Simulated assay, not measured.
Amino acid sequence: MKHVGILAHSAEGSSLCYLTLCHAGSSKLGDHMHPDITMSTIPMGLSMSDWEQENLVPIRARLVKSAERLSAAGCDFFVCPDNTAHLALESNGPELQLPGLHIADVVTTEARRQGYRKLGILGTKWTMTKPMYFEAAQRKGLQAVAPNEMDRRYINEVIFSELCKGVFTDVARAKHVRIIDSLKASGCEAIVLGCTEIPLLISSESSPLPTLDSTRLLAHYALEVALGAQDLPNWRGGPAN
């Protein structure tokens, strides 16, 4: 089996990815079995002011440092269970020391496999407005749309003031359901839970639309790579293709 590296950025999302990878491994390999996993986590708080200024250079440098740690630990490839962090990883800079799965590529590949044509994107304000998911969808022949500006501001605030701190309320859940309903009314056929904490708030049962859970999809795809059912990725940062 291949050795999986988790390049973590936010705590809740990376924890969910880790646990999903362990549990999925046990379901395929037997009790208490899963691929070797190493995680590197530089505190996200060091990057928050850089995110607000959209200064990707120091953010990317921290993520590169984590990738170097994973490579030194013997990982064969990495996953980064943080959608927004991929914006920094896609920015200009030296190649990463090991290849990784691109979360938007994993999600849109699954969307196409399931036959969806129009996707609603939920995530941080950067994930919902920057080109990453929209271009990834376009490469698969799909359309992606984001909520309106007011709803984007609300989702972003909840992510950082509640979800990233492990706080999940019925009020936030109800408001997210309303936002998903509005995307459904605009013709979306599925909703991308494009912040790795949102799946802890919104489940497939509570959502008015089928969900594409970026966190768990990434973990399951990583397991397939680790077991040799999928090829090793070749993306080492920079623009996705």
Rank of each mutant, 00 (worst) to 15 (best):
G228M: 06
M44I: 14
A104L: 01
H34K: 02
N234Q: 03
G166Y: 15
A229V: 00
L98I: 15
H86Y: 09
M48F: 10
Q97F: 00
E189R: 00
S14A: 15
L96N: 09
L89K: 06
G5E: 11
A222D: 03
E12L: 04
S214M: 01
R153I: 14
V225I: 13
R153K: 14
V171S: 04
Y221N: 02
E90T: 05
L7Q: 09
S10P: 04
H86A: 07
N92D: 13
L122I: 06
T108D: 12
S15V: 12
L218W: 02
L98Q: 10
R62C: 12
K118L: 08
R178H: 03
S10L: 10
L16S: 14
R117E: 15
P35M: 01
A172H: 01
N234V: 06
K65Q: 10
D151K: 00
W126G: 02
C22F: 04
V225S: 05
G93Y: 13
K125P: 00
S203I: 09
L218C: 01
A174I: 04
A136C: 05
L217T: 09
M128L: 02
G141D: 10
T211R: 01
M48V: 05
F168C: 06
H3P: 11
S186N: 00
V57A: 15
N241M: 09
L212Y: 05
I42R: 08
S66V: 04
A61D: 14
Q53M: 11
G123F: 10
I202Q: 13
L218V: 09
T129G: 14
C188H: 03
M132G: 05
Y154I: 13
M39Y: 02
L218G: 08
E197T: 07
L223K: 03
M1C: 12
R117F: 12
Y154F: 15
D31G: 02
L122D: 12
K118W: 01
G5M: 14
N234T: 11
A144N: 07
L21D: 01
I59Y: 03
R216N: 09
R173F: 05
C164R: 04
L19Y: 07
L201Y: 07
M132K: 07
A111D: 11
E197W: 07
V57F: 06
M132A: 08
G5K: 15
Q230P: 00
V57C: 07
C164N: 12
K165V: 12
S71L: 03
K140Y: 15
D31S: 01
Q97H: 05
A240H: 10
V106M: 07
G238N: 07
K65W: 01
I59W: 07
L16A: 15
V225R: 04
I180C: 10
H3Q: 13
V158C: 06
E110N: 13
K130P: 06
P43D: 11
L212M: 07
S203T: 15
E90V: 03
V192A: 08
T211D: 02
